[in-house]
Amino acid sequence: MKHAETVTFGGSALDRAAELRGDAEAVAARVAEGAVEVILLWRGKLLVHAPELERLVRLPADHPVLADATMPPVLLGRDESGRLLMAQDISGWVPEALDEAEINRFLDTSLQQHPGLPDDTAFAELRRIMTRLSARDAELGATAKAIAGWHVSHRFCARCGAESRMIMSGWQRSCDACGGQHFPRTDPVVIMLITRGNRTLLGRSPGWPEGMYSCLAGFVEPGETIEAAVRREVFEEAGIHVGQVDYVASQPWAFPSSLMFGCRGEALDEDIRIDPEEIDDAIWVSKEDVMAAFAGQNPGILPARKGAIAHFLLRNWLADTMD
């Protein structure tokens, strides 16, 4: 597919400046020169310009709010002007009247404004804003969220249990106790558009909004190919056998740390037998019904979340642009 990298979070060609990750002196010199901008996170949410929520805020590296950072800066890359881009996290800050239930909803629409930052900025959940951001800001946001989340969940050495420390500008953790070296984790996940004639197989997970359906998906297991994972997951979840499997596109999905491999597969049968431990429901849906759902004219089906690779796969299936 020629436009595979147009999927959300892909295609911005960010220069990640990997050669600078181990050169602390060079990075410090750029900070001293004022040639560094910082993207700020709070509990996985990104600081954006409000009320539009269309652009990430880039702070100077000496901004006073960064004194409250809960981890050292992570080098994300370098922009076209040569400025370095870093991410920092201030999750230790507790907003007044914080509604924990709201920020843990399926779709968090709440905004948090820090008193030490301009009034026209706010922290917003990435899934809410991902389709509003430019390709570059989307890639930066997903990278910042994923790497910050990894540091939070991997503070301790998996070999000996001692607390490790960040090195290589945030792209490695080192354990001084046993010498273990740890690198950011990305979990491979297959997500598949399974078709049979004019219909596609959609499913829903428990806890999703009423009527929401999407492509089936699941984690790739050790020792397994992408194609084998597609066939196994579809059979486990819906009891459908799959023949030909083709790769379509990939999407970094920082919720918390996955790489989605979008595939297309041909069903060999159509008798659905769901595993209730895996999914809540599965149905065959025609192109016409999916098109109506996308247009908001199918009251029985809510389409996959816009910006997710499932939406990308379904949209291209409808447009006959899968090749």
Results as ranks from 00 to 15, higher is better:
E237P: 05
T121P: 02
T195C: 08
A32L: 08
H114M: 03
P115S: 02
V220G: 06
P299R: 07
D187V: 15
D271I: 09
A228H: 14
V190Y: 04
L14C: 08
D119P: 10
E100R: 13
F9I: 00
A267Y: 01
L133H: 01
G218D: 00
V74A: 10
E52P: 00
L202Y: 06
R58V: 04
G141C: 00
N198W: 02
M166F: 08
G223C: 03
R43C: 12
P256I: 10
D99Y: 03
E288G: 06
R305M: 06
L75V: 06
H154S: 09
L85R: 06
P252D: 14
R105S: 12
D120F: 11
V48W: 02
P188A: 01
G207A: 04
R58T: 07
S164A: 15
S81Y: 03
V234H: 01
A228E: 15
L76G: 06
S250W: 07
A217I: 02
R16C: 05
A13M: 12
R43H: 11
M260K: 13
E236T: 04
A18I: 14
E221P: 06
F261D: 10
Q244K: 15
G307E: 00
D275Q: 02
R165T: 15
P95W: 04
Q172H: 04
R273I: 10
L126Q: 00
G239Y: 09
D23A: 09
A13K: 12
G307Y: 06
P184W: 05
V38L: 09
M166W: 04
A135G: 05
T321S: 13
L117M: 00
